[in-house]
Design a protein around this nucleic acid. Sequence first.
RNA 1: GCGCCCGUAGCUCAGCUGGAUAGAGCGGCAGCCUCCGAAGCUGUAGGUCAGAAGUUCGAAUCUUCUCGGGCGCACCA
Length: 682
Amino acid sequence: MYRILQLQLQTSIELLLKERYEIVPGNLAMELPPRIELGEIALPLAFELAKRLKKAPRIIAQELQAALAETPGIASVEIAGAGYLNLKLDRPSMVQHMAADEHSMVGGSGFRLVEHTSINPNKAAHVGHLRNAILGDSFARMLRKDEYKPGWETGVQNYIDNTGVQVADIVVAVTQLRGMSLDGVRNWMEALHSSGTRLDYACWDLYAEVSQWYQADPPRVAERRQLRLDTLHAIEAGGNELAEIADLIATGVLRRHLETMERLGIEYDFLPRESEILHLHFWETARALMVERGVLYLETEGKNKGCWVMRRAISAAAGVQLSADGPDEDAKILIRSNGTVTYVGKDIAYHLWKFGLLGKDFGYARFRDYPTHTCWISTMHHAGPGSELTSTSDPHPVRGFGHADAIYNVIDSRQDDPQTQVKESLRALGFAAESEAFTHLNYAFVGLTTRTALDLGYVLSDEDRARNFIEVSGRKGFGVKADDLIDRMIAAARAEVEARHPELEEAERAEIANTIGVGALRYFLLRFTRNTVIAFDYQDALAFDGETGPYAQYAAVRAANIFRKAGVAEQDTLEAMANLDPNRDLEPLLEGEEGAGIWEVWLTASRLSLVLEQAIAAAEPAILARYAFVLAQQFNNFYHRHHILTETNPTRKTLLLATAAVARRDLVRVLGWLGIGVPAAM
RNA sequence: GCGCCCGUAGCUCAGCUGGAUAGAGCGGCAGCCUCCGAAGCUGUAGGUCAGAAGUUCGAAUCUUCUCGGGCGCACCA
C-alpha cells in the first residue's frame, strides 16, 4: 500500500515540477523519516532543486508544500530542517486500505530461470551448499506467482556435474581402494541402504580417503594420477562399466541431495546433467557458432599457441589490437591444444541452451514427484526401454526450460571470473539482450569458526587458529554436513517443544520442532547479505532468541493465539474494519503516542511490496529477512503494550484485532518467501 | 603483478539510488510472569564508521591513495 502511495506521489510531483519550474526530475528520492513523529515519507527534493533553481531549499519547499498536501492519501506536509518536505499519511484511510489487502502488484512477463544447488554428486552436501540452495530457493519464491502477487513464470533447475573429476575420484575409490566391480557396487549400495547408512555420507569419507591415497605413496603418484585421468575419460566416453558405476553412484547421491533439500522445503523442476551436454554435443554446436562469429579463434603464437581462445571482457573493451600488440596472452582458453574443451566452453554451450540460442534441447524424463509437481531430469532424446528413467512423450514438460528470458545463477563468488566469461561470450556473439538478462547471483563462501572446527574434532595448524575462519574442504573431509546440521537444529527445537508442550501428541511435537528447526536454519543463512563471508558457528546457529527465525515465527504464533482464544476469524476482523468511520472511530485511536505504537505496525506492514521489490531488484533475500524481523519486533512491542482480549471498547478492540491480523498476515507472507513456515504452536 | 570483495559498538551484522541525532541482535548491567505463552518486553552502558586527501549545501555511502584481511587470475574440472 505504501508503494501505491509512492507511485501516486511521484506522478503528481513530476506534474507539479513541470508546471511550476519546467523541470523533469531524474531519480525522485523518497525516504522514511528518522522518527515517526516527523511523518511517513520524507522528500529531500528541495535540496536537489536548490542548485538548478538557484533558490534556498527552504523557499522551494514552501512553494511546493501546499500543492503536495492535496495529493490523495496525504494528510499534511511539513517543512523540517534545512528544507525536508515531510509528509504525513492519512492514517485511517491507509489502515482501511490495508485491511482490505490492497497492495501494488509485483511481477511481469517472461520466464525467469533460477539455477541453484548444483552440488557435485560425489559426497554429502555441507553448510556451504545449504547457503546456496537456501538463497536460490528463497529467491525463486520471491519471484514466482502466489496468493499475494502475479510474479513471474519461474523455473528452478539444479545442474548436475555427473561426469567430472570428483565423480571419477569416487569411482577410483570403490574400484581401486575397495576392489568393487559393478555388481559389487550394487551390493554395497544395497547394504548401505538396508543398514540405514546414508550413501552420500559413505562417499564423503571415501572421497577424503582417495584424495589422500593419490598422494600417499610418492613413487606411485604419477601412476595413480593417470588412473584417475583414465577413469575420468572412461566416464565421459560412456558405454563402459566404469561409466555405469559412476552413473549408479552419482544418481544415488543425487537422490540423497534432493532428500536433504526437501527437508528444507527446497524443490526443483529440472536437473540438466553434464553427461547429456556431452553426449548431445552441445559444445560442438556452440563452437561452430562461436567460430562463425569470430568470437573463438585459433591462437598461432605465444604461450597459448595451438589453443582456441576467447578474449576477456576487459581486453575487448580496452580495444587491444590483436595484430599490432601480438597475441592476447590474457585470452581465455576454450579448447586446449590437445583438442579437448575446457569447463567454460561447455558452460557457454549450456547457457546458449538456457536462452534457446543453441538450437538443441535435452530429452526429458520424470525423476522425482513432489506433492505439487514433478522434477524432470535430462536424458538423451530417445531413452531406450528398460532404462531406469522412463522417457516421456512430451518433449517440453516444463514450459520455459531452454527458452528463458532471464536467468539467475546462484554460484559462489569464487566463480565470478568464469561467469563473467560466459556472460561476455553471449555479448560477443551478438546476444546483447541475453547477456543483460544474465545475472550471476553470487555470494561469499561459508567457513567454520575455529571453535566449531575444534568441536568437530578437526586438527588445526597454528596458521589455521590465527584466522577468523576455517575453510571447508571436501578433500580433507572438513565441513559441517547438511543433514547433521539439520538434525541438530531440529533436535534443539525439539527439546524446547518438549519442555513447553508436554501435552501435545508426539507427531504434533515433531512437526512443530521441524518447522522451527528449519526456520532457524534458513533464517540464519539468509540474514547475512550475499557478500558477507559467513563463519559458521554451531552456537550462533542454534540460538533461538533475538534476530532469528524462531523469533519471527513466535510473533506470528502469538498473533494466531489471540484469534484462537477470542474465537474470532482473522478475516472477519479485517472486514469489520471497513464498517468503522475513519474520522470518528479510527482517527482518535491512531493519534498520539499510544496511537502511534499501533500505527507503526500498520506502516511497517504497508511497506511489504516495496521491500519485496527492493529485495528482488538487489537479488538479496537478506533484505526480506531483516524486514521480517522488524515487523515481528513491532508486533511483539504492540502485543506487550495492548491487552486485546480484555479490551472493552468494541471499536478499539476491532482495531487491535485487525492490527494483529495484518501483522500476522504479512509476517506469514514474508516468511513464506524465505521458505520459513509458521508452526501451529510454539 | 592484475581483477573483485571486505574493514562500522566487546562479538556477529544492517545501514536502500549521498540526507536529519550512525542502528539491530548477542553479550554486560538493572528491571518485568495472579493479565492474549517470558522463544517475549523495558531501561542502561558501549562507536575517531581502518587511516588520509578530494568532490559539495551535505559523505559510513562517491573518487584517489595508504594500511590490514579475504577470494580469484592454470592447456584442473
